[in-house]
């Protein structure tokens, strides 16, 4: 009876009782609409966007070689026309270094974060989904990497395999994935017990499909946040390595600028401060975006 009634109603569009809300929103779109209303997150997005634009297009307008000695060392910013930010201890143009060095810094940051997320996600997914012995084994591996002193381990890796950009990315990825793995594992442990996973199994899906097309999309929100934050961590890590002299000496980066000028900080503060401020701004903007994403994905925080 009721079934028939309903189908009749559907043919009659004037019936107001049966109309659903016309706007249909996916959970992701909904999170996005919350995100773009978050002022600090948007500020972060703008800062990061400006920095990316500066490093991508800055070279078109200011294509000076950052390694070339151009002028007297220790020229203060603004005192010499043509050297807006002054020069460093060798007389190299700081503005050129800032523009040229931003690209590698950001590239290392983003690719190391991607690597971290990929390794961490797959380890955590398998551990959390299968449980039992597989879980125990993968958790042991994760813990092994977690108790290693990250910086030392990365230094050893870079010292053994020459200091190239790719080695640095791999080293950062290798030492920072355990946190992501643990997060993914917890999410998988929680979600695999939920009813829609049993329901997915009951319609005949296999394990692989349940892992990646049922559980993973539901585990994504915290993973997106952690991936964003790990971009900031990776940038700091890269700067730290360069500061210690373990960066790629042939590729200009902000860390390298700080590292090579650090001995002369008492004579000239700006060659250290300028790239330092940019690292700070980049990491800050990434963190702001990460916080905005946390709020957007967590409905309980939204109300606050």
């Amino acid at each position: 009876m009721n079934v028939k009634n309903n189908s009749k109603n559907s043919k009659n569009p004037k019936n107001p009782k049966k109309s659903f809300s016309e706007k249909t929103q996916s959970p992701l779109k909904e999170a996005w609409s919350v995100f773009i209303r978050n002022k600090s997150a948007i500020a972060g997005l703008f800062i990061l966007g400006a920095i990316i634009l500066l490093t991508l297009y800055g070279q078109l307008f200011y294509g000076e070689d950052p390694f070339e000695i151009k002028w007297l060392p220790f020229t203060s910013p603004g005192t010499e026309p043509g050297f807006l930010l002054g020069t460093d201890y060798l007389g190299r143009d700081l503005l050129a270094g800032l523009i040229k060095g931003g690209g590698p810094t950001l590239a290392v940051g983003f690719s190391a974060a991607t690597l971290t997320t990929l390794i961490g996600m797959s380890m955590g997914a398998f551990a959390g989904f299968f449980g039992g012995k597989i879980d125990a084994f993968l958790v042991k591996i994760t813990e092994f990497f977690q108790v290693l002193p990250a910086l030392l381990f990365a230094m050893v890796l870079i010292a053994v395999f020459s200091p190239k950009v790719i080695t640095i990315v791999l080293a950062i990825g290798m030492v920072s994935w355990p946190a992501t793995a643990r997060l993914t594992r917890t999410e998988f442990l929680r979600i695999r017990e939920l009813e829609y996973v049993t329901a997915a199994r009951s319609i005949g899906m296999n394990n692989f499909r349940i892992m990646f097309s049922v559980i993973l999309p539901n585990a994504l929100p915290p993973l997106i946040v952690s991936a964003t934050l790990s971009v900031g961590i990776a940038i700091l890590f890269e700067s730290g390595l360069s500061f210690l002299g373990l960066g790629d000496p042939n590729v200009m980066s902000w860390g390298l600028m700080i590292g090579s000028n650090r001995n002369y900080i008492l004579e000239a503060w700006w060659p250290v401060a300028v790239p330092g401020v940019f690292i700070f701004l980049t990491v800050l903007s990434v963190s702001l975006i990460g916080d905005g994403l946390t709020d957007a994905f967590n409905p309980k925080l939204r109300e606050r």
Binding site: P27, L28, Y196, A199, R201, S202, G204
Partner: peptide, 22 residues
């Protein structure tokens, strides 16, 4: 797995949580 959901299907207790929310 070929039978499950195909020849033998199941409806669960909790419709609120049996559908994938995303």
């Amino acid at each position: 797995r070929k039978l499950r959901g195909n020849k033998i299907a199941m409806i669960f207790q909790e419709p609120m949580t049996s559908l994938n929310p995303v």
